[in-house]
Structures are given as structure tokens and as C-alpha cells.
Design a protein around this nucleic acid. Structure first.
Lengths: 334, 334
DNA sequence: TGGCCTTCTGATACCGATAACATGATACCG
DNA sequence: CGGTATCATGTTATCGGTATCAGAAGGCCA
């Protein structure tokens, strides 16, 4: 019934004012060293727990950075998130995470919700948003970073790479090694914009290299993963042999395809090349290793952290655009 | 300079008191329907954004549930988290996520930090905590749920399964199919308690089945994944053929082992059986499919949501213990 | 007509920390 | 020794919602 322990209680116990307690707990040097120590001791004894909500309210600084990801269940996004957490955690900032399930409407809802927590910055994955999302964000003085893409018309800062260029490298590599009849394996057209950009990149690059039209193989609604890759190839059966190469939207999909292709007795890369995207662990360990694109998920996270730190320190005025690039990693499937 | 838009501003604009605005925005039916609509319109027009911090402060209800996970970059934990997010999001609760990197000291630090946000419940992964963590939690009236384990001496509620029993099933299966010389592939002894429990389960079960002593193969500090499994087997070389079966701490590790074993020309399961844990996607798609244990990560999340809902509704008094069980899934590697 | 109930709205205080300013005690200076 | 700098602490007001109680307006009944 005594309710929670507040600074007032601690103050009373040490015979000082709450203000002194506040200062002591924040290690303010204007407070006498002995007093500081005593306050800390007593606070500990009383089981005092600092109330960040009250602080956030009074100072109008929440200590939160809001982040949206399409999905946590994706090693690359998870890696970015990990880098964000450890980088910002050191700065005393907590992350507020939301996942959009690859849908911009869901993102809108999330942003609406996250903004009510008064975050000090907003980090969005991707550069496609609903108009409502855009207008929610604009006007407010809130720093915004879009990551994992290089949007044409950014909301604020950007840390990403060109999905389209990355795919062009993959297609260039395949063309150079004599592959001509390509199929792209990805999610159904629809919500997943990053997937769509990759697909478009493949088409454009194939065109540039004067390859025949790229066949689109639909592995189902996003997110698509190993089992979808495997299922769609199983459904296709031996017909898959008509292609020289399967260009997959991600490594998990590529692994699914690889596995299914091998099961039907075809040889990779002899009968057919397969490429992935993202440099997931499975691409390095699978047998054969999958040709893929390294996107430096962790680096994206780190760059975002650096940028945020600069913003909080007031060192950033103009919008920043960081291209972390990407890199073709030739494996044994091509 | 005008600062943020508050309820006061909205109230002024509609010529009513802030209290009425507050009620209107919360859809309180005691407010006249027309007034409600008008308030909403005006709020929208002024770009008013509700301040959850102020609400949390005044009502002493944060709208947060704090969750700790060993790692987000793990499909099973990510799946549990997804289930929690979608289940609790519907109830208007937001998740505060922290990852412990499989270390109890890090968990302690995290819990300390999370508690300052005044969460309405705390969901921890696993049943091993530092004494400081335990005392931080006890005493406070905060509902606590430990998940993914069935701890002997729980802090509060529990939703999990027996890692040890699950491993016993795996070993039983191997013994029944004539495997005798087992090796366990897992992380170094140390922080990861779930891994340690699995290891102990294997040893005990092997003993029970009168198998020779189980060899421990150390794949490095937690978390161990595909590449660690592959690396440790590569380092072992053909010596691996002395075992009848590799019992791996997780599916990714098992896949790494499988891949390395295949690369050196051995056949699975003819020369050697391999088992995993967790029913990860890779186990279903790999070639051959990996014998594993299905742990229903999503179900754990759902059960935790149900439990929390019960707690918030005041329907739960005594500590609840839910065993979601686990199930051996025999694949093609054994 | 008076009394009472229903419907809607307002006034006030408060949640816990802290910014901003004020104050009391000492020390130190020429 | 008066005056000013320095150090340590206290006082007051405030951040933006909302619980609680009070009250005005209108309808209904006997």
C-alpha cells in the first residue's frame, strides 16, 4: 500500500531535498561527494527504481529511438537491429521496435503509434511509405533516417544501397559466364518494394546485356523464404531445366531452390546456376556455396548509429546520404 | 516556437475544456457524439499527436511489456517475438525489447534499464538469472513470465518446455535405430544455459540407454550457428567418422555439420546420423532433411499473450505453469 | 410546479522528476 | 573588514494528460 519508492522517499531518508537526490543520482558534481554516495546507498537500500517516464515527461526527451523493420525474422534486418541496439544502448538510448510485415499500411499504423511515445528520432526501413505516413512525419522537427534503400525522394537522411545496382552486378556476372535464359524467383508483386526493385533491376540488366526476356517465378506473398523457394521449384518440376540461371530475391529462397533442384537430380551449377541476395549464413555454408550479394547489414546499423550520434550532438544540419554499397560474392552455384 | 500541439490547443480551437477533448479522443460515450466528431476533426487538422508519455505518467500505466531475448537473430526467438507483438499489439500494448546476447549479466543490466520504464509485465527468456536480477524483480508487484524453459524455482509464471526431456527423445530415437557412439556439438560451457541443459539431457539419456560416454565437441562461445558447426567438423576432419551420430544443439549447427560432413565425402545418414533442435526452416528444406525437435516457438508466444491477457484482466492469481511440450520430428539424417 | 434523474461539460489536483532561480555558508581577496 | 566568488543545497513551477468531484441544462413524472 506504500506505493512505489520515489525520490521524495529517498530524500526524506537522507534528510535532504528531492532536488539533491535527483542531482546525486545523475552524478551531478555540484553535489558533495559524500552526499552523493550516501544518497546512492540509501536509494539502493530502499529499492528505489528511477522513473524514466517521469523524466521523459518533464524533460520532453523520451530516450527512445523508434525503428521499423519489415520483419525481425530475417537475419539481415536482425543484424542491423543488433548493431543499432548495441550502438545506441551505449549512448543510453532505448530502441522502440515495430515490424511492418512488409506492408506500408502496417507501417503507417506503427509510425502513428510510435510517434505518441515522442521518440527522439525515427529510423525506417525502406523508402516507400503511404502519403499519410509522410505527412505524419513531415513538419514535426523529428530526425528521420531511411535505411536499406536509396530513395529518390527521401524524408530526411538515408543510409542504404541500390538494390537495383546490386542485381545488375549479379546479372552481369551471369551474362559474363554465358548464362542467357534467366528466371527471377521472388515474392508476388505487391507490398514488398525492396523485392520489386530487385526484380526491376534484374529485368533492366538483362535487357542491357541483350538477354532474352526474364521469366518471373512467383513464390507467393512476401516474405518468401526457404520453403517457398523449394515449393515453387518442386511445382515447376523438370521444367526448371529450361533456364540457365535462377536469380533469387534472397539467399534463403535461393537455398530452397537449390535444394529442390538437387533433389530432382539436376546439378548446380552444371545444369543451372543459382544466385541469392544478402550474404546470409546459409549461402556460405550450403553445398555448393551460393553466389550472392553482400549487403553489410551490420554496417548499415553502425552508420545509422554514427549519424544519429551526430544529429544528437547537433553536428548535422543538411540531410545526409550514405551509400554503403554492395558487393558480388561469387560462390559455387554459378 | 509554438511548441507541440496539446489537448489544450485542441480544446481552445473547439471552445471546450481539455477534459472534454481527452474524453472525446478516448471515445468516451458520455461525450456528445457531435462534439466527439468535431474534436477529432479539429485534432486531425491541427496535427495533434497524442502524448503517451504524459498518459503513462498520469495513469501510472506505461502500456509497455518488457521482453528479453538472448538474440533476435534466431528464427525461433524471432518467431516468438512476432507472436507476442501481434498478440499484444492488438491489445494496445507495446513491446520493449532487449537482447541479452546469452549472458545473464547483460540480462541484469537490461532488466534494470527496462524497469525504469515502468512496464506492466516482464517476459524473460529462460530460467537462469543473477541474484541481483531476481531481487530487482521480487517485491515489486510486477507480473513476470519466464519462457522457453521450465525452471525449477520460477520467479512467477512459466511458459516453456523441458529442453532436457526433448534431448532425451532425440537420444532415445538414435539408440533405437542402433546408434551408439554419440557426439554432442554445442557451444562452450559458459553463459548459454539452455545449451547446457540440452547437453546435460543428452548425457543423462545416453547413460540411461547404456551408450558409451558422449563426446563433447566444442563449437565455440554462444551463440553458435551454421558456420561454427561447419568449422568444427572441418577441423575434426575424417575423425568424425568414428561417431555414429552428431547430436547438435540447434538446427543451424546441425546444418553446418551436415554440410561439412557431406563435403568430405561422407554420407548422411549412412556413415553418420545428425540431429538438430528447433525445427528451423533449414531442417525442413535441407537435403537430406534434418531430424529435429519441434518446439513451437509461435505457440510459446501465443500462450504468453493469453497469460498476460488473463493477468491484465485480473483472472490470474496463482502462478501459472504451461508446458507446451516438444515433439521429435524424424527427418532423413537419422 | 417542484423534485429528481439523465446527459453533458468543467474545475481542480495530481502523477515524479528537474530547469531555473534563490539562498546560506565559507573562503578568499585587496 | 567589506565585498565578491565558490560551493552546496533548497524552493517553486512545470511538463500533458486524466481521476474525481461538481454543476448546468433539459426531460420526465406526479
Amino acid at each position: 500500500m506504500t506505493g512505489r519508492v520515489t525520490m521524495r522517499d529517498v530524500a526524506q531518508a537522507v534528510g535532504m531535498s528531492p532536488m539533491t537526490v535527483s542531482r546525486a543520482l545523475r552524478d551531478d558534481r555540484t553535489v558533495n561527494a559524500q552526499t552523493r554516495a550516501r544518497v546512492r546507498d540509501v536509494a539502493q537500500q530502499l529499492g528505489y527504481v528511477y522513473d524514466s517516464t517521469a523524466q521523459a515527461f518533464r524533460t520532453q526527451k523520451s530516450g527512445f529511438v523508434a525503428v521499423t523493420l519489415p520483419s525481425v525474422n530475417n537475419a539481415n534486418f536482425a543484424e542491423t537491429f543488433r548493431a543499432l541496439t548495441s550502438g545506441l544502448g551505449a549512448a543510453g538510448v532505448q530502441l522502440l521496435l515495430g515490424s511492418t510485415n512488409y506492408r506500408v499500411e502496417r507501417e503507417e499504423e506503427l509510425v502513428r503509434q510510435l510517434l505518441t511515445r515522442n521518440p527522439e528520432a525515427l529510423v525506417l526501413t525502406g523508402g516507400h511509405h503511404t502519403d499519410a505516413t509522410r505527412s505524419l512525419i513531415k513538419g514535426r522537427g523529428l530526425p528521420v533516417i531511411e535505411m536499406w534503400d536509396l530513395p529518390r525522394d527521401p524524408l530526411g537522411h538515408v543510409v542504404g544501397f541500390s538494390n537495383s545496382d546490386a542485381m545488375a552486378h549479379v546479372v552481369g556476372h551471369l551474362a559474363a559466364t554465358g548464362r542467357r535464359k534467366l528466371a527471377f524467383v521472388g515474392a508476388s508483386e505487391g507490398a514488398d518494394m525492396r523485392g520489386a526493385v530487385r526484380r526491376a533491376g534484374v529485368v533492366r540488366a538483362a535487357d542491357m546485356h541483350r538477354l532474352p526476356e526474364v521469366t518471373m517465378i512467383d513464390a507467393g506473398p512476401a516474405p518468401v523464404s526457404m520453403r517457398h523457394g523449394a515449393a515453387v521449384i518442386e511445382a515447376l518440376g523438370r521444367d526448371v531445366a529450361q533456364y540457365d540461371a535462377l536469380v533469387c530475391v534472397s539467399d534463403p529462397v535461393a537455398f530452397g531452390c537449390l535444394s529442390a533442384v538437387q533433389r530432382m537430380g539436376l546439378s548446380v551449377p552444371d545444369d543451372l546456376a543459382i544466385t541469392g541476395f544478402g550474404h546470409f549464413e546459409v549461402a556460405k555454408v550450403s553445398n555448393p556455396r551460393i553466389t550472392t550479394v553482400n549487403v553489410q547489414a551490420e554496417d548499415i546499423g553502425r552508420q545509422v548509429v554514427d549519424l544519429l550520434q551526430g544529429i544528437f550532438d547537433g553536428d548535422v544540419d543538411a540531410p545526409v546520404r550514405v551509400d554503403v554499397g554492395s558487393e558480388l560474392v561469387v560462390g559455387e552455384t554459378s
